[in-house]
Design a protein around this nucleic acid. Structure first.
Lengths: 235, 235
DNA sequence: ACGATGACTAGATTAGCACTTTGGTCATTC
DNA sequence: GAATGACCAAAGTGCTAATCTAGTCATCGT
């Protein structure tokens, strides 16, 4: 049945992604078939291919949608409090937001059972560290306004920042059962560690509005890119 | 042929471990058979089982031997310069030493191709972060002598320290090809990050001999434990 | 006229089975 | 009594047939 309402398309895409995310988490990457997804989403299999060009792309879209959502939360927080653009605050919130989203969490903790291929795919990179953790523009902005330690240049963070952040994410499944910390406590450690490692000892009481606005623009652009991956029409 | 010379046993164990390490790196975990190892080491298969109780234990012994060697290097450095017991210096050296030892490197970077099972084995834990990175005694010693930041208690490092260190090790295979750093440069980042994250801004010009001696004892004990795993007789 | 569909096909995956390899043991040897 | 390698159960491998699934596209319904 053809309807073609312009906004229905987005709604349908979301329905398909909802189903995919659900099955992905319950059954794992390998057991999810397009037929099953299409059936549960109430559409024909061919319809799925009207949205994405292949199986991989669908899983990627699920992850990208969650990433966009996480960035939305980051942006909202930055709007509410300009200090949220500070490196340690940003990463703290990203950590919390990412860990609360099952698929993103699986991506970051490298849960092979549920994500398998997605982790091996080179196109996964845009999801991971690179952009999210160390966007050059964002770090440049911090540097320009004295929000990085010493004369620490943004590019000096290229290696250590993603390494440290990755450490907090990926060490999750390895945590000794003696260490039982809640998400917020872990996030505090992330913030504390990053603050001391990469920021000046004393930070300004508040971040100038224009700086925050610039940061927000950077992350909104990033969210837009993720949504393109999410809903970008098939080939 | 029975000889039973007391020291021959150790020599034979090393010969077997040498062969195992070689094959492990060249063929990967899966293709290495006990028969092949025994043959190349010039002993009967049964003899291998006089040293270790099973296949897994042999691979574990290979890794444990390298770990002991790395700790030896750490201890030697501490003897030569007491400042080497400082957290950032210790982890810097451990990073370098571990990365230079192929099997240890594979353990830390989670190279599944060559180590596979070893990584899934719960008994792998003693090899990993836990003991090497955050020995309670060592951290306690640092705390007692004001070598940890602020009023940072040793147990406060239980979570973030291994996470950060793990990050530097495990992010290795993910490094963007744009970031090309030598081992020493990476190690400098490790040291710099850990210094700022967990140590006081200004560190003493030298570490008192007795403190260094105590630290050395701790690491010598650790090396001893690794050697027990390495050469400990079969069940 | 065109978005939506599901029957269809090629290629991948799995099941079943004979055959081979290998971890681990232990009676025998030196 | 330390060292060995023939031995056995169990796991693994290769092969074929049968099944399943990603992706396509002619057809359908509106």
């Amino acid at each position: 049945m053809a309807r073609g309402q312009p906004a229905d398309r987005r709604e349908r895409a979301d329905r398909i992604l909802d189903v995919t995310a659900d099955l992905l988490l319950r059954w794992g990457h390998r057991r999810v078939t397009i037929d099953e997804v299409a059936g549960r989403a109430g559409v024909g299999k061919g319809t799925v291919y009207l949205h994405w060009s292949g199986r991989e792309q669908i899983f990627l879209a699920v992850a990208a949608r969650e990433a966009a959502g996480a960035i939305d939360a980051v942006v909202a927080a930055m709007r509410a409090d300009t200090r949220e653009v500070l490196l340690h605050r940003y990463m703290r919130r990203l950590f919390v937001e990412a860990m609360q989203r099952p698929v993103l969490r699986a991506v970051f903790t490298r849960d092979a059972e549920t994500l398998d291929r997605l982790l091996a795919d080179p196109r996964r990179r845009p999801l991971e560290g690179a952009k999210l953790v160390a966007s050059r523009e964002y770090l440049g902005l911090l540097g320009e306004h004295g929000l990085l330690r010493d004369g620490l240049r943004p590019e000096d963070l290229d290696y250590p920042l993603p390494a440290v952040v990755y450490g907090f994410f990926a060490s999750e499944p390895l945590l000794s059962h003696e260490v039982v910390l809640g998400l917020e406590e872990k996030a505090d450690h992330v913030a504390d560690t990053l603050h001391h490692a990469f920021e000046p000892p004393t930070l300004p009481r508040s971040v100038p509005r224009p700086v925050a606005v610039k940061a927000i623009e950077i992350f909104e652009q990033l969210a837009r890119e993720f949504r393109e991956v999410t809903y970008g029409s098939a080939k």
